[in-house]
Write a protein that binds this DNA or RNA. Structure first.
Lengths: 155, 155
DNA sequence: TATTGTTATACTCTATAACTATA
DNA sequence: TATAGTTATAGAGTATAACAATA
């Protein structure tokens, strides 16, 4: 309603046609919005996406050590330390020193970690369903297949 | 060839099936690999993807100011300062103070900036073609459409 | 000699608040 | 008072090098 007044010429709206024709730009924008949606459904339980992926992988691979987790998740080994520190500090997982090889620490979820992860997975599925609703089920499947194909082919 | 010796049990290969079923994880992995490929084709001319996007948008919108660029590229205004500083320091663009409104600085590519951008766009097209070769032309188009649909629908 | 977890360092990105100069 | 560019600050992510304990 204030459009005709001298508030501001709406918005300049620059020409982005070059970038918008690239997959790299589209994937960056989509990723930012998807992660924002994940944080929206996670709410105040406040786990980062990186922490969520650690919890999810540890749940399916109890006793994995930090190097294996780093390798699997594609992060550098030093990066695992503060990541696991934060989760251990919240009582969601524990580092158990290996008796066989005392350099290793086996990571296990605590019961509280299992409980939180289960709630987070439920919330995550709300987000995932939102994506499927936007794209339609068959296009969502195609998108996932395309992304995975890129990941395997570009490695 | 050393596989049968006790070097290491190859690699533990953790179970990632939960994460691999999610679009969020797939898009993050794909984005990292795509950006790595872009840096590979850019080579030692060493422009970041963010700097490349600034150059590309300024080329199509000569005289845009920093706020409009920040808005268009989805970065915070303060972030534009070091971004443009770096490009101006390399002589690729200039800040021209506006005479009409002395708060504005109009951004323009220098001839050297135009030249570098033109070379970078050629290299970028090598990368983009690699993606199209991996996916096939029609699936590449579908992927781009899917990503754009997500971006518009999730905003 | 190599590996696990760790510390340290540095650089980028992100997010905010606040300052200045202009309007 | 509002806006453009800037500075300052703090948190998170990323990348490397190196160290201690252990193998």
């Amino acid at each position: 309603m204030a459009a005709s007044q001298g508030v501001r010429a709406v918005a300049p709206a620059l020409d982005l046609s070059y970038l918008e024709g690239t997959i790299g730009y589209a994937i960056r924008r989509a990723q930012l919005l998807i992660f924002a949606d994940i944080y929206r459904v996670f709410g105040q339980d406040a786990v980062t996406t990186a922490q969520f992926s650690v919890l999810a992988v540890v749940a399916d691979n109890p006793g994995a050590n930090q190097s294996d987790l780093a390798l699997a998740l594609g992060v550098e080994r030093p990066r695992m330390v503060p990541l696991i520190d934060a989760l251990e500090g919240r009582g969601l997982l524990v580092r158990i020193p290996s008796v066989a090889d005392r350099r290793h620490r086996h990571i296990h979820l605590t019961p509280e970690g299992e409980r939180l992860l289960s709630g987070l997975k439920q919330r995550f599925s709300v987000h995932q369903q939102r994506l499927i609703d936007v794209l339609g089920p068959s296009d969502a499947k195609r998108l996932l297949r395309g992304l995975r194909l890129l990941a395997t082919a570009m490695t």
